[in-house]
Design a protein around this nucleic acid. Structure first.
Lengths: 166, 166
DNA sequence: CCGTTGTTTTGAGTGGCTCAAAACAACTGT
DNA sequence: ACAGTTGTTTTGAGCCACTCAAAACAACGG
């Protein structure tokens, strides 16, 4: 068994440090690392983030990443999105009401600013007595790469499921 | 071990039978049963559907239900929705572009017709080159019951996660 | 520098779902 | 009405993404 050494957080100050400390969380090496790679690769799974974190912090555990992400989303400095059929994805962009478009073929995800400048989509017609707090929009389609790929090869677009359409 | 006997499909004709046969699927007892309970309890999990199906068809297996649901969604006579943090839910309402509102406290789900009569929310501003096929909207809020419950008891509303807001 | 508080590691465990082989029933043709 | 073919269901195993809990350990306040 390899003796894993835990690492000091280093960096007495900095933007990342500040945003962690600002929400009352202790500044630790895994948290700094996760925050850093979250900027480098938004819409990443915990697993993917772990791989990136380990590049600079080899002893990091998957549970640590889950813990960090839970702390971040709880504190409001990260957001968790869960597209159907995909493991959870995380991003730092938060509090600016944007949505996501997912490629049905390769699962690539991009940000989409709220439609039409307004928020009409967030005012449903019949709420059946529900109080609407938030609305989430997920667009499904083909990313540029997969558009050309499907045109040329006629390979199956592998539909994930039937969604609410139009 | 109880010897489970498989059951004949019965019912030579009928609405349920027709809608199954119409999409090229064989008519079987589990399929009829699932289709029936899907009407009785929309937005149910596979597990819940199984429980209901077993009331009339005791030997049914969970995998059968998954198989039936996969066949139905594939054939377009059922729809699968996957709200964040919830197992998949199924419903028969299909092809009419409606969305869903989920209670953040008790996970109750209701249908919501597409906002504002139009489909403005389905025309994102910047698609980053993506071709939009479908859009899915999930509203999050409190159902009538949980609104009163939270007012009177001040019990924690148990937020599921932070969503795209406004 | 020490103690308290809270995070990370380590390890186990769960729910929801998928895959595969074999038993078996639905439909086709006769 | 019956047998063959095709496709569904049962049975059983297995996987992924994630959660829970205890113990080791580090961050921050004093």
């Amino acid at each position: 068994m390899t003796k894993t050494k835990r690492m000091r957080a280093a960096e007495p100050s900095g933007l990342l440090v500040d945003s962690i400390r600002a929400c009352g969380l202790k500044v630790t090496a895994p948290r700094l690392a996760v925050l850093r790679v979250l900027d480098l690769a938004p819409h990443s799974t915990a697993e993917r983030l772990l791989a990136m974190v380990r590049a600079e912090l080899p002893g990091t555990s998957l549970q640590a990443v889950y813990g960090v992400l839970a702390a971040f989303t709880g504190a409001g400095i990260a957001r968790k999105i869960e597209p159907a059929g995909s493991p959870a994805l995380f991003e730092r962009r938060v509090g600016d009401n944007h949505h996501h478009i997912v490629c049905t073929r390769c699962s690539a995800v991009h940000d989409v600013d709220c439609a039409v400048g307004e928020s009409p989509c967030l005012t449903p017609s019949n709420t059946a007595g529900f109080t609407v707090r938030t609305a989430e929009v997920t667009y499904w389609g083909l990313c540029p790469d997969c558009q050309t790929a499907t045109l040329s090869t006629l390979s199956a677009p592998a539909p994930l499921s039937n969604k609410g359409a139009r």
